[in-house]
Nucleic acid binder design. Structure first.
Length: 554
RNA sequence: GGGCUCGUAGCUCAGGUAGGUAGAGCGUCUGGCUUUUAACCAGAUGGUCGUGGGUUCAAGUCCCACCGAGCCCGCCA
């Protein structure tokens, strides 16, 4: 970043062709010189030196900044969009996060940008998905915004899936201007582009044929009227157009509707939208990117029909779930909502931030996810990755520790007590802090429930139900004494365990096992020192003493 | 059949529009802290850059061919 600014802030001077030789990049103060000269010099040694200098600009730059740099000098509208035909999963989410990152990068570079999200709620329901009841069969072909909500509580089908998604956007600190396509159409924003499309039917058909190599069917129209009788978009055929669209429908009816009663087919809708919203940057999945795919046809329609330069494409790869492509309809998916139940939002952002859009991501909610969390928490707070991932108001408590905490605490109050004892201060009068902590705790609790391997799960037992041998009792007794004597911090406790074991000639591992058995009834558990100080001190003392009861007393 | 994207250390990835001595994190190993337990510190280890050609004084980087993975070309976003 810094190097880049230096590079670009340097004006080209009049003696640009004077060789400027330096041994190290730091010594060079005018990279423009080096750039020019490396191209014209024929002396290999000189070239080497010059190029070495130029190399400096190849220092790590985040992909979002690189895109922003490429786009510099113009006002931008970044358009994202997802069809709310089912639960929106994290694969879909890549589109919006990618857009947001570019948006932030442009802003950070001092540019002007707007982020837009378009909910394609006018798209027809393609089929009755497995998660829908039989009664939905009759809605196939109707716009999503005209179909009743599955839970009966939202305005319509589209809103049902949109609501949790929009809420997730908030959590992810993504704030696009939100459009719903039914509003864009019915409010007349698309009037113009629809008219042009219908009038250009022949030319559009030709473009589609030329780019995708497919003949469009007889009587094809870029506009799908919505049949006022059966409410469907997919069953109508356009017969004629003057001011109104004349159509016939498979339901047997025919008639005329206005151009606000319907929708452009996807391949035309896309470029039309670019024109209407002045879109200049468009992230999209690789499915649209192939030759003859919808970006190709869209770009031509945009130029040739709408006279609009198509937006800068940003192609992103799919996110797979343990190797399988995500698909809500096949049940192979993790919804954004679900993921945010399990990890804080910055982790989801980081997952997208850390790799270039064209890189494929395989998602595994179990251990890999935890590694992702660790990696993020270890990240240098000043790094660009951290900056781009970071979401305001995040509790600064390691997730792994929280996993221990929530398994000790029985309720919200105890969470704060446990945190306090283990050295994390939370100002409980600060509502936002409290909220942040509870939200992280809820993530951890959910993660344990859903994905934790057995080894990481534990429960503090109500009573000791294990008997110990003499050595073990001795070790535990001495620990109890230490706890009684004074308060210790986690490290001290941890050290004491080793010391006590050594004092009585016991293998430390045996003492650790005994401790875990006393409290958890298992031979292993979270790091002992940190675990023990998380518990109430009196309880620890009492429990250690209880371990003395049993066969040696009788 | 046509096309798009990806292939760099054991793993995850930088090295994107500028050819110039192959990088980071994690892991692994070693050493240290009277210390294997879900810890910390220090150091070390690690790659014929998918393969084969070509251009060049110089190629992970540019060109061609091939291999492997995924996807698109069914108007369906």
């Amino acid at each position: 970043m810094l190097f880049n600014r230096l590079f670009f802030d340097h004006p080209l001077t009049s003696n640009a062709f004077t060789p400027l030789l330096t041994d190290t990049a730091e010594e060079c103060n005018d990279h423009q010189h080096c750039q020019q000269n490396s191209q014209f010099s024929h002396d290999p040694i000189e070239k080497t030196k010059l190029n070495k200098c130029m190399r400096i600009k190849n220092e790590r730059m985040h992909w979002a900044d690189a895109i922003a740099q490429e786009l510099a000098g113009k006002k931008h509208v970044i358009a994202t969009g997802i069809t709310p035909s089912g639960p929106i999963h994290i694969g879909n989410m890549r589109e919006v996060i990618t857009g947001d990152l570019i948006y932030r990068a442009i802003k950070d570079a001092g540019g002007d940008a707007t982020l837009v999200y378009i909910a394609d709620n006018l798209d027809p329901l393609r089929k009755r998905y497995p998660f829908l009841g039989k009664e939905y069969e009759k809605y196939v072909g109707m716009p999503l915004c005209d179909i009743p909500c599955p839970c009966g509580e939202c305005e319509n089908y589209a809103e049902h899936f949109l609501k949790p998604f929009l809420k997730s956007l908030e959590k992810l600190d993504i704030h696009p201007i939100i459009y719903r396509s039914d509003e864009l159409y019915t409010h007349g924003k698309f009037d113009e582009v629809i008219k042009i499309a219908i009038q250009s039917t022949e030319r559009i058909a030709k473009i589609l044929k030329e780019t995708s190599g497919r003949d469009v069917p007889e009587g094809w129209s870029p506009f799908m009227p919505k049949c006022p009788f059966c409410g469907k978009l997919t069953t109508t055929r356009v017969l004629d157009f003057s001011d109104m669209v004349e159509f016939e429908c498979e339901c047997g009816e025919e008639g005329k509707v206005g151009i606000r009663e319907g929708k452009l087919v996807w391949r035309v809708d896309w470029p039309a939208r670019w024109k209407v919203l002045n879109v200049t940057v468009e992230p999209f999945g690789k499915d649209h990117a192939a030759a003859g795919g919808s970006y190709d046809t869209g770009a031509r329609i945009s130029r040739e029909i709408y006279g609009y330069e198509p937006p800068h494409p940003v192609v992103y790869e799919w996110i797979t779930l343990k190797g399988k492509p995500m698909s809500s309809s096949k049940g192979v998916s993790v919804t954004v909502e679900d993921m945010l139940k399990v990890v804080p939002p910055d982790i989801l952002r980081y997952m997208i931030v850390r790799v270039k859009p064209e890189k494929h991501i395989d998602f595994d909610p179990q251990i890999t996810l935890l590694q992702l969390v660790d990696e993020f928490e270890e990240l240098d707070r000043g790094s660009r990755e951290y900056e781009l991932s970071h979401v305001e108001l995040q509790a600064d408590i390691p997730f792994r520790h929280m996993i221990t905490v929530v398994q000790i605490a029985k309720n919200d109050d105890q969470i704060f007590e446990v945190l306090e004892r283990s050295g994390y201060k939370v100002d409980r009068s600060d509502k936002r802090q409290v909220e942040a902590v509870l939200s992280l705790a809820s993530n951890a609790r959910e993660w344990v429930k859903m994905y934790a391997p057995e080894r990481m799960k534990f429960e503090v037992k109500e009573r000791v139900d294990v008997k110990f041998d003499e050595k073990e009792r001795e070790g535990l007794r001495r620990l109890a004494e230490l706890f009684e004597k004074r308060e210790m911090d986690a490290k001290e406790v941890h050290d004491s365990i080793y010391r006590v074991a050594n004092e009585i000639g016991m293998k430390p591992s045996k003492l650790f096992e005994a401790i875990y058995k006393v409290f958890l009834g298992k031979k292993y558990g979270p790091r002992a020192g940190w675990f023990l100080v998380s518990l109430p001190r009196n309880f620890v003392i009492q429990r250690l003493k209880e371990s003395q009861e049993g066969n040696n007393e009788s």
